[in-house]
Computed example of a mutant assay.
Amino acid sequence: MSQFIQLHLLTSYAPSNLNRDDLGRPKTAKMGGFERLRVSSQSLKRNWRISELFKEAMAGHIGIRTKRFGVEVYEALLAADVKEKSAKEWAVMIAGVFGKGKKDSLEIEQLAHISPAEKADTLALIKLLAAENRVPTEAELKLLKADSTAVDIALFGRMLASSPAYNVEAACQVAHAISVHSVVVEDDYFTAVDDLNDGKIDSGSSHIGESGFAAALFYSYICINKSQLIANLDGNEALANQAIQALTEAAVKISPKGKQNSFASRAYASFVLAEKGSQQPRSLSVAFLKPVDAEDQATTAIEALQLQAENFDKVYGACADERYTINANKGEGSFDELAKFITQ
């Protein structure tokens, strides 16, 4: 059976606007009949994946998501002294391997996730085509997608609509982070003053605006199918463990970037419950169906989370083989030990 690693995080943010909706206000959701603050899983995953922490830990094993791969190929062909007309024709063919091309453009219609190995194979093919001054063969183009062992592709999956055979099933699922209590989004009315305005002619501000914000203690849930991850990485368990550890560190330390300069919304997780085993995974979000309403929200939320895990065990039997927690509020546990726990 598959081996699952589940992470349950509680992270507190002071007033901030971590993840904006179409109106520029913090994203929200109704849960248990009350409005909660929300951070989308897309926002979380992107901020983890592009963080310096994750990039340094997984250097050489991270792909790129882009529509503009054809532009990069075109420029590389020109640099290899391929004539402009041929370079454009070949670049369209190579980019078309990863997605349907746009009319009269080097770009493809949707974002494609391309692994370092696929990029390296493409650059090698460019060198060969330039040396032999010829069009790429169908077999050569097909080989470009033979190796996709990038850890971010293995973790979060890939869909190539034009080539379903090269899709990758995500080994990691990330829930939208949700506040454990009800919230009211407030408005920050602000002005900007012109430094060269001495107030003699115009005493008003040069700009007036408003921005939504709210403070919240978020519950986040991450589920990693380690067996699937190892399979996605062609059986490389050491690389899978490295990826799990890097993702976990990013999840507990990296914050969304929304309005970061205005709110300095950087936070580490205050509490982490890590579980591993072959049992069917489950979120513990039901612990917060009733909003936490207490003076000491963090302690109450931690107790509610642990109680819900215990209650699931009582009803369904052990839902995990092993557990490990760190509690930054009380200074209990160690991240180093957590990292060892999830990879052993």
Rank of each mutant, 00 (worst) to 15 (best):
M159C: 06
M159N: 04
M159F: 13
L160M: 01
A161T: 13
A165F: 03
V168G: 08
A170K: 10
A171E: 10
C172S: 10
Q173V: 10
Q173K: 07
V174T: 15
H176G: 02
H176I: 02
A177K: 00
I178G: 00
V180Q: 13
H181S: 14
H181G: 11
S182E: 14
V183E: 15
V183I: 15
V183K: 04
V183A: 08
V184P: 03
V184E: 11
V185E: 10
V185H: 04
E186N: 12
E186S: 14
D187V: 04
D187I: 02
D188C: 01
Y189W: 12
Y189T: 00
Y189E: 07
F190P: 09
F190D: 02
T191F: 10
A192D: 13
A192C: 08
A192W: 04
V193W: 04
D194S: 06
D194Q: 14
D194G: 09
D195R: 11
L196G: 07
D198M: 07
I201F: 12
I201T: 11
D202W: 08
D202C: 08
D202K: 08
S203C: 05
G204T: 13
G204A: 15
G204R: 08
G204W: 03
S205C: 13
S206K: 09
H207P: 03
H207A: 12
H207E: 13
H207R: 09
H207Q: 11
I208E: 14
S211A: 14
S211P: 01
G212S: 06
G212E: 11
G212P: 03
G212T: 02
A214K: 00
A214Q: 04
A215F: 13
L217M: 06
F218K: 01
S220F: 01
S220T: 13
S220E: 15
N225V: 07
K226S: 06
S227R: 09
S227W: 06
S227M: 05
L229E: 09
I230M: 08
I230L: 01
L233M: 07
L233Y: 11
L233K: 02
D234G: 01
E237F: 05
A238E: 15
L239E: 11
N241D: 14
I244S: 07
Q245F: 01
A246G: 00
T248L: 06
A251C: 13
V252D: 04
I254L: 03
S255E: 10
P256M: 00
K257Y: 07
K257A: 14
K257M: 11
K257H: 08
K259F: 09
K259E: 05
Q260N: 12
Q260V: 00
N261D: 14
A264M: 02
A264R: 00
S265D: 10
R266W: 09
Y268R: 08
Y268P: 00
S270C: 03
S270D: 15
S270K: 07
F271N: 01
L273D: 01
E275P: 05
K276D: 08
G277Q: 03
S278N: 14
S278W: 01
Q280H: 06
Q280R: 06
Q280N: 08
P281H: 05
P281Y: 04
P281K: 05
R282A: 10
R282Y: 06
S283H: 09
L284I: 02
L284V: 03
F288I: 03
F288L: 00
F288E: 04
F288H: 01
L289S: 12
V292C: 00
E295L: 11
E295R: 12
D296E: 08
D296F: 03
Q297Y: 02
A298R: 03
A298F: 09
